[in-house]
Nucleic acid binder design. Structure first.
Lengths: 105, 105
DNA sequence: ATATATTCTCGACATTGTCTATCAAATGAG
DNA sequence: CTCATTTGATAGACAATGTCGAGAATATAT
């Protein structure tokens, strides 16, 4: 089962695409979810998602502008994507017929 | 913030409509979310939602078929509905452009 | 070297998710 | 009427997720 924040973080990683490391993922969440999370929260969630096999991580290209260590980038795995789609599909199914702004096309 | 199950329970209460007490809400979740929850889990979640003001409860009509005590029915409050819509809107916003089965119309 | 900026890790604690066991009320059998 | 049975509700415990803040690691500028 994916928690609510886990879903959001998975979506953010997908959105950021390449070089999805902590900072841009965090920024994307703040921007689109209006949620004032800490970086620590994002990293913690990413770690847990990795333990469950929903994302994998790899060393990012060392292209730091000014200070900063190497980045740890994340990508959603197939399993992660399946799980995310399943969660969203459930919500959509349950929203059918209600006017809650999530009706199917 | 609404957890994932909280969202599902709110949706189920909306779906069931009148006389939304524990059992039918539970059934609706099992049916649409393929989630094998216990009745206890549903009640616990409903309690917590009520503490937060997202649902209210009232005594149901005593129309038991065979055994059974008076029912405690639940309805989603305005606040609850707003909160639910907000959560779903966030997901939808974040899904825009990704092919995860939750794109806006 | 030292200060500083950027990225990441690690406890610690709050909230949510979940079950099992148990309680309560209503009904029908005897 | 009494009580076993059925349906509905509650409570306590523990697991999983959500969240923060403090600090560690690493690179650069001075």
């Amino acid at each position: 089962m994916l928690g609510e924040l886990e879903q959001i973080v998975l979506l953010a990683v997908l959105r950021v695409g390449d070089a999805a490391y902590g900072v841009p993922v965090h920024d994307e969440i703040v921007r689109l979810a209006q949620r004032d999370l800490t970086l620590g929260t994002v990293y913690k969630t990413l770690s847990r998602l990795e333990e469950k096999g929903f994302v994998r991580s790899y060393e990012g290209d060392p292209t730091p502008q000014r200070g900063g260590r190497r980045t740890r980038c994340f990508a959603v795995t197939n399993t992660g994507r399946k799980s995310l789609e399943s969660s969203l599909a459930t919500l959509r199914r349950m929203a059918v017929g209600l006017d809650v702004g999530l009706e199917p096309t």
